[in-house]
Design a binder for these strands. Structure first.
Length: 207
DNA sequence: ATACTGATGGCCT
DNA sequence: GGCCATCAGTATA
């Protein structure tokens, strides 16, 4: 039982070594893991059901390919920290820095299946089905209240976030990453093929 | 079901 | 000035 998690969650806390591996492997294995967010109103727990891997300067879709200063510097930093940025001036995106030591990379958290704190999520998202509350990277941050202020936060066991192992999904699918122009040929998007909380099942093949 | 479009701001050149 | 790792709304089938 993890300390300070809501009752009923007896999963194991994630080890840092889980995140100190090749970014693509981590993205795949993160599907099914649990993310806790401590909100002023209470604990939010979500099962990660969709991710994307973004590698270092050689990955044309990665922010690391174009910049290395400012917020993006986090991709060179310690595995387990949050890389948070805003997109299109409107949407906030949450990444977990994950890579072997000396490499560069992060995993975009694209969708969560709500397990606790649904009322908190619904306050920010309105009357949509539970499974659609966090069905996309922008929606995930909007619903959970994650903002640019969370950039750099410790995600494994910090004051704001915690990560835990969950049951491995029956069916993990992969596809090209979405919403990008270059690098669509890499099958670096992973999702739970049985979850209704995934942003889109299109293009997915079992892995 | 897919296709297009406008909103909107930080960070780059 | 020109990008965008998006979303909701509208339109057409």
């Amino acid at each position: 039982m993890i300390e300070r998690w809501p009752p009923g969650f007896d999963a194991d806390l994630m080890r840092r070594s889980f995140l100190i591996r090749p970014t693509v492997e981590v993205a795949r294995d993160l599907v099914g893991c649990l993310l806790l967010i401590r909100d002023p109103q209470g604990a939010i727990v979500g099962r990660i059901v969709e991710t994307e891997a973004y590698a270092g300067p050689d990955d044309p879709a990665s922010h690391a390919a174009k910049r290395r200063t400012g917020l993006v510097a986090a991709m060179w930093g310690e595995s387990g920290r949050a890389y948070v940025y805003t997109s299109y001036g409107l949407h906030t995106m949450l990444n977990v820095v994950a890579k072997v030591d000396g490499a560069v990379g992060a995993v975009l958290i694209r969708a969560l299946e709500p397990l606790a704190g649904v009322e908190i999520l619904r306050e920010r998202r309105g009357p949509v089905p539970d499974q659609r509350l966090c069905a996309g990277p922008g929606l995930t941050c909007r619903a959970t209240g994650i903002t640019a202020a969370d950039h750099g936060e410790e995600m494994i066991s910090g004051s704001r976030f915690m990560l835990a192992m969950g049951d491995r999904p029956e069916r993990i699918c992969e596809s090209g990453r979405v919403g990008i122009r270059d690098g669509t040929e890499f099958p670096w998007r992973f999702f739970d093929g049985n979850s209704k909380a995934v942003s889109a099942h299109r293009g997915g093949i079992p892995v």
